[in-house]
Design a protein around this nucleic acid. Structure first.
Lengths: 338, 338
DNA sequence: AGGGGTAATGGACACGTGACCATTGGCGCG
DNA sequence: CGCGCCAATGGTCACGTGTCCATTACCCCT
């Protein structure tokens, strides 16, 4: 475990000189620089980021907390963020909160203890952890929310244009002739007014439809709940002619339920969903989706965070919106005439 | 950013006493302990793991390098390992190598610089990085390979019973009456004799079949390659009657190709694959799969690594095999009589 | 020739913690 | 009553780095 002192000794220079070969090579005589570099090479020296982080007051580390790593949206986000961080010399600490703000708090403590320089977070549901995020910010961690942000949050965020995307989806279904459109939404009605669920009734009104209570129930963001809700929806006296799933995880449950009921898509019911998950193109019929530009969002998030960290502008707030993209594949069609 | 010194001052005790409230509370008088704990609470003190890591000589961090985070097998692994690490107070640094050993090396340097206490790695293909792993081990990082290990590797590993699973799959197809069984394998023929691809011809022989060269071609582990190979296989003068995909990513490509060719599963061709990915149950027909116990494997890996780290037994080598589980859903059937 | 500036190098110290050793006071026991 | 032990608390230093200040030698310019 060679340190910079070993490098200095081997190169026959003072420790300070050896350090300069790394951070300010232009200050060294070419010959000295070469000698130090050779010593680094021979010893396989790699700077200790732990010691450096301590002295510097901030680490070469980023935290990423997502809702659930297994969901392709987040898996893709983890991947993109990890790559972007790596390319700028940062390591990425990954956690998930399973959409639970209590678990989230426990994980935040770990990230706080690790003194991450930046935090990209998709908060869970329940009592908000804004206070804790605020404390991390005071301590020097730059915080950015992604995919969701607390109402009144002071932090930067990177979001999909949720409202626009919901409106586009509803307009699409309406234009096909659908008048009974149900949604699978998800939010905590107390703390988390999730944008897509909120936009849905407005979107209906914008095309002249009246929101129906039982067509817009909200559930926990897991597959089994969506499965169950879809069964219930289709067993209503007046079942919907189209289902608009507000995320890909719930779409899987909806699809399973529709298959099980023996309903044909899109003849008996149309299905539209957020998230262009790979399975949506493999099933029969392939699903119409609203794709999120996950990778662009992830790269943008890292850029905002690391720029603020490295340019020492902790108070800079950047808020971005990315458009969704509707991809038609054949799971939506005009409703049957009764 | 309160430190333990602030806590000590507030509690009116010496720093050493304050520290003991955290690590050796039994040494303190109950009243003193309570006073310190109150100070910790009031200040929201959280130990600085960076400073602690430096002093201690090892950090509260684990590294996890996987092939590609987007693949559900790895996403699930990341999730499980992150949870297991978190429950023992460790943070998890995640990277992927995109199956490329050069990229892997760059990422290993970052992990080395971060002084992770342990490393769980799924190596990529190309020139092995055994030398670098060896150096990390010498430096104090406990290394465990998962899902794959270098031949002759001195490290611990956690693996599927690949050979047994391939044999079971082949026996299953053979028992249904298949004699022309093709595989989608993946390995680097020079460096990476991947177990499943190697076991396949042996498994054929064990049921009395002769391996056919063009039925066992190996490709890069990505969906488009599997798609292309499947098209080629099914256009052979004597196409296979069953395809055995050695992982879930390739199965997606195979499925897409078969659909596109208009072939019916299982009437025209049977399809069996490793990995119980969620989409395999949603497509028509749902696929027969060999499920890997990913979560058990992940938890076992963390346990082995952290036990060795915390019990200071860096030379202890543990090697585990987990059985696969064949799940029949309807994508395999007896071949048609020609 | 002498002063000042600069290129090149060296030395000292603090970041916050954990490990180790030192000190104090009180009580039991012979 | 005095010795010794132990419970309880305090003090010191090193981990490896980054930052700031100090030192040396040489050259340029007037």
């Amino acid at each position: 475990m060679p340190s910079i002192l070993d490098v200095a000794k081997r190169a026959g220079v003072a420790p300070t000189t050896a350090k300069r070969a790394i951070h300010e090579p232009h200050l060294l005589a070419p010959e000295t620089l070469a000698r130090v570099r050779r010593a680094i090479e021979e010893l396989g020296y790699e700077p200790d980021q732990v010691a450096g982080g301590l002295r510097r007051g901030r680490t070469q580390t980023l935290g990423l907390m997502v809702g659930n790593i297994i969901e392709p949206f987040f898996a893709s986000l983890v991947r993109t963020v990890a790559h972007a961080a790596q390319s700028r010399g940062y390591a990425l600490i990954v956690t998930d909160n399973e959409y639970d703000s209590a678990l989230e708090r426990a994980n935040l403590r770990v990230l706080y203890g690790q003194r991450v320089s930046g935090l990209i977070i998709r908060s869970g549901y329940g009592a908000p952890n804004l206070d804790y995020l605020e404390r991390m910010r005071e301590r020097g961690t730059y915080v950015l929310e992604i995919d969701y942000f607390y109402p009144g949050s002071p932090f930067s965020h990177v979001m999909l244009d949720n409202e626009g995307s919901v409106f586009e989806g509803v307009r699409y279904l309406h234009a096909l002739g659908h008048r009974r459109i149900a949604t699978l939404g998800s939010y905590d009605p107390v703390y988390h007014p999730e944008e897509r669920s909120r936009a849905f009734p407005e979107a209906l009104r914008s095309v002249g439809l009246s929101p129906v209570e039982e067509y817009q129930r909200v559930i926990t963001l897991i597959e089994p709940e969506a499965y169950k809700l879809t069964l219930e929806l289709m067993r209503l006296p007046e079942p919907p002619t189209a289902i608009f799933s507000l995320n890909g995880t719930e779409a899987a449950g909806a699809f399973r339920a529709l298959k099980e009921l023996g309903l044909r898509i899109p003849e008996d019911v149309s299905l539209l969903t957020f998230d262009n998950y790979s399975w949506t193109a493999l099933v029969t019929p392939p699903l119409d989706v609203i794709e999120q530009p996950v990778e662009e969002m992830g790269r943008a998030a890292v850029e905002i965070v690391l720029d603020a960290v490295e340019h020492q502008t902790p108070d800079k707030v950047v808020r971005l919106r990315f458009p969704g993209r509707l991809i038609r594949r054949g799971s939506c069609a005009p409703p049957r005439r009764p």
